[in-house]
């Protein structure tokens, strides 16, 4: 699941842009670390001797939530539908997005911000002349945060873009806590995983607007019980729109595209 970094540094990440319209490289900009070493140990005024208790009750996600709210406002202002795609590693996010930008993307301009621990393979797979793509390498972070997304988005040429796909790092736990400013959270469950995944990771499924049951083309072959998986998703996430599909055979893709069309922001 999460990669243990333990470096104690603020997590560095890089943004790399692959786009014909906005070629350029912005690698290695460090995140602005909140926990800079304390310089002010010797304060000017002597401290009071009695111990002092301060009740703070502040959310530790406040910084991210603030950045997410700014992203959200920006997406709305630009009349852009933003989707955050979350799944276990390998559930088929990049494959689905590649096909989506090829098909749906001909109709409505799409852009992609994709997060990965190390490589920019996914950005290369997604890159098309008509699709601006920004790769964010998160280093050791197991999820995208709203600041990273803001940088990725800023680096892109957004002219005419109606849909912003954000492919999160493959992980079902950590992304649940990090709002990116998306309008739609999409959780993917593939037929190569267990039917009981939704029961094991309820928070992420409960936060989903859409659950995509992917790779249904191989379900039969693998003895994956689609009915049971659907039942589990419905029980854990009754609020979510559920779409079984295959990015390989194309089954269910028209339903997915219809969903995207319905959610587009009027310009």
């Amino acid at each position: 699941m999460c990669v243990d970094c333990g470096c104690g540094k603020s997590i560095p990440f890089g943004v790399k842009v692959l786009s014909v319209l906005a070629p350029g490289l912005l690698r290695g900009k460090p995140a602005t670390g909140a926990g800079a070493p304390d310089q002010g140990v010797q304060t000017v005024t002597p401290a009071p001797h009695s111990p002092l208790t301060v009740e703070v009750h502040a959310s530790l996600l406040a910084k991210n939530d603030g950045a997410a709210a700014r992203n959200r406002a920006r997406f709305v202002e630009r009349r852009m539908l933003a989707l955050n795609l979350v799944s276990s590693p390998g559930a088929g996010k990049t494959t689905l997005l590649s096909r989506t930008v090829d098909e749906f993307g001909r109709e409505h301009r799409c852009a992609v911000v994709v997060g990965d621990l190390e490589t920019d393979n996914d950005a290369r797979r997604l890159h098309r002349p008509h699709v601006p793509v920004a790769q964010i390498t998160t280093g050791s972070a197991c999820h995208l945060d709203a600041d990273m997304v803001a940088r990725g988005v800023e680096a892109l040429d957004l002219d005419g873009v109606r849909v912003m796909f954000i492919e999160n790092v493959g992980n079902l736990v950590c992304p649940a806590s990090f709002d990116l400013g998306e309008a739609v959270r999409v959780v993917l469950l593939s037929a190569t995983e267990g039917e009981d995944k939704p029961l094991k990771y309820p928070p992420i499924f409960k936060s989903a607007h859409v659950v995509l049951l992917t790779k249904v083309d191989v379900a039969g072959l693998l003895g994956f019980d689609c009915q049971l998986a659907i039942e589990n998703i419905r029980r854990v996430a009754p609020q979510a729109t559920l779409i079984p599909l295959s990015a390989r055979s194309g089954e269910g893709l028209s339903v997915w595209y219809d969903y995207l069309r319905q959610r587009l922001l009027p310009t």
């Binding site: 333990g6 603020s10 909140a34 926990g35 530790l60 996600l61 950590c174």
Partner: peptide
């Protein structure tokens, strides 16, 4: 693992 980042946020508040 994002505990380091979370803890950095916490310590920034503590220092403040």
């Amino acid at each position: 693992m994002h505990e380091v980042g979370i803890m950095e946020s916490a310590m920034a508040l503590v220092q403040r």
